[in-house]
Design a protein around this nucleic acid. Structure first.
Lengths: 149, 149
DNA sequence: TATTGTTATACTCTATAACTATA
DNA sequence: TATAGTTATAGAGTATAACAATA
């Protein structure tokens, strides 16, 4: 792996400020839409597929079941999600995004992607494509397992 | 920018789990070396160049001056850095890494890079090179300003 | 008066464990 | 008894402001 190891800086040290800036740029957008970061994450997850339990939803976005309860309360109060007892198992709550939630999600995402595009535009076109492809690849890998070997 | 915007997921949402896993992988390595994450960051910064003030060092690693004081106390007690009053301005503290600090830093970094290489090895060679190049480019840009436009 | 480093305080997140209601 | 959701508590990390020493 000589081509990777030549005096490069830590991957984490290089990525951390970028991610921090991305998150900071998201905040005012999310504020304008009246949702939190976890709320945005929940809406994104529910857009793809309704959730059968809150715990399953939480783990799918890398959160704890206790951590998203307040977020679900807010989203429900704002009419962005529905949250009904499962008739087949009344302990569980069936979660799905509402049309209004989808509208808010799409609006926020458009502005977030627009900001991200400003950053990506700084990269040469070829490098940009490879970067996006690599990030998408990494996001599908079991990163923790790979690093833990 | 059509080539960037096609149905891709949020950059932040894709990068966050990767960074989280990178940080989690660093922890046991840093524990073995008896330093904290901020300590590792401080040693990395001081390796390149001694610092004239603690505040300057803090801002160079994206931290607050009050946040690194405990870290500096630990590093100094462990003999990893020196911290002397500046003769020219006794309010300030001149900071530099010791040979022992350099040894610890290099040892920790070798293991961290080895773990990162496991992850990078999952990418096709061409994509890996472009990814690393892009990350290095991004880490030199004023990311916050670009995103804030 | 301004600046460097330090300490103290409060606030936000997060993790853990206990509780309820259903099964 | 086991599980889904909820609540309560404590802990870590962070931000802000006040303070002492020096300029």
């Amino acid at each position: 792996m000589a081509d990777q190891d030549q005096e490069r800086r830590d991957l984490g040290a290089m990525l951390a400020p970028v991610l921090r800036a991305l998150i900071a740029a998201e905040r005012p957008v999310l504020d304008d839409h009246g949702i939190s970061m976890w709320g945005y994450s929940v809406l994104t997850a529910l857009e793809g597929m309704p959730a059968r339990t809150q715990a399953a939803l939480a783990s799918s976005i890398g959160a704890d079941k206790t951590r998203i309860i307040g977020t679900l309360d807010e989203l429900q109060a704002a009419g962005h999600i529905t949250r009904e007892p499962d008739p087949a198992d009344r302990r569980a709550r069936l979660l799905s995004i509402t049309p209004e939630g989808q509208r808010v999600l799409r609006s926020a995402r458009a502005r977030i992607h627009a900001a991200e595009d400003l950053l990506l535009a700084e990269l040469p076109a070829g490098e940009r494509r490879a970067f996006l492809s690599a990030v998408q690849t990494l996001s599908t890998l079991p990163v923790e397992e790979i690093l833990g070997r």
